[in-house]
């Protein structure tokens, strides 16, 4: 899931300072399950902001709504009918949700209420850890299912650095050394030989180094199908 954290209240107040009527839009997917921007968090933030702005002497009209997913057109389109009532949208979606709203509603300012942090999982209740950096060229098959790109501070591909001490990372002792984890798991699986293969430098052109990325599936595109059907009829 995408993991996010709510921005500090003071920063959110700054972001909505120019608006009188604010619609908080929560998201019912990733940020709901990481307790950052779901219906409950939207209700709490709405109530908090109504009281905080009133105490500051300029109370704002603030309402909340939560959509199932902010990152797909069909879920946010129904919002359009009520947007005339608001000066600004305060999105509690991830960075993708904020941009989807901004792209769909070009006349309406959209500001983020969250900081999107990473892609990861809850390792226990209340603790989330990063697991994937979307590098575009997955090597988990070579590294015993543990990602050195997301979990090694130096993104090393051929074993740990000299800073690995007692299974911990030199960057921060709270970080387990990814290569220690890889070694232990490969050993337990009897697949240590896999680690002897030297990995060449990673092709970062499939990651952010290649600029913003795009995935196109021609077999799924509706415009493509229409053209195909029209072509077949001819």
């Amino acid at each position: 899931m995408i993991v996010a954290e709510q921005k500090p209240l003071e920063e959110i107040k700054e972001l909505i300072a120019d608006a009188e009527r604010v619609l908080i839009v929560g998201c019912g997917t990733c940020v709901t399950v990481c307790f950052a921007g779901g219906a409950k968090e939207a209700a709490i933030l709405g109530s908090t902001l109504r009281m905080a702005t009133r105490l500051d002497g300029h109370g704002k009209a603030i309402d909340e709504v939560t959509v199932q997913r902010q990152c797909e057109w069909e879920y946010i389109d129904p919002l359009e009918a009520r947007l005339d009532d608001y000066d600004l949208i305060l999105s509690l979606g991830c960075g993708i949700g904020v941009q989807t709203l901004a792209e769909r509603f070009p006349d309406k300012p959209v500001v983020p209420g969250l900081n999107t942090v990473f892609m990861g999982l809850p390792v226990e209740q209340g603790v989330w850890e990063e697991r994937c950096q979307a590098c575009g060229d997955c090597i988990l098959g070579l590294t015993a299912g543990i990602c050195p790109i997301a979990r090694c501070s130096k993104q090393l591909l051929n074993g740990p650095c000299g800073g690995s001490q007692d299974g911990r990372c030199e960057v921060d002792e709270s970080i387990p050394c990814a290569w220690q984890l890889i070694y232990e798991r490969a050993k337990a699986l009897g697949r240590l030989d896999k680690l002897l293969e030297i990995q060449p430098p990673k092709d970062w052109s499939k990651s952010r180094d290649g600029g913003p990325r795009r995935v196109v599936r021609e077999d799924l595109r509706l415009t493509h199908r229409v053209a195909e059907v029209a072509g077949g009829e001819r």
Binding site: K40, A43, I44, S47, T48, R50, M51
Partner: peptide, 11 residues
């Protein structure tokens, strides 16, 4: 009882 009800009461 949820924090939302408590906040609404204070509001």
């Amino acid at each position: 009882l949820d924090i939302v009800e408590v906040l609404h009461a204070f509001e």
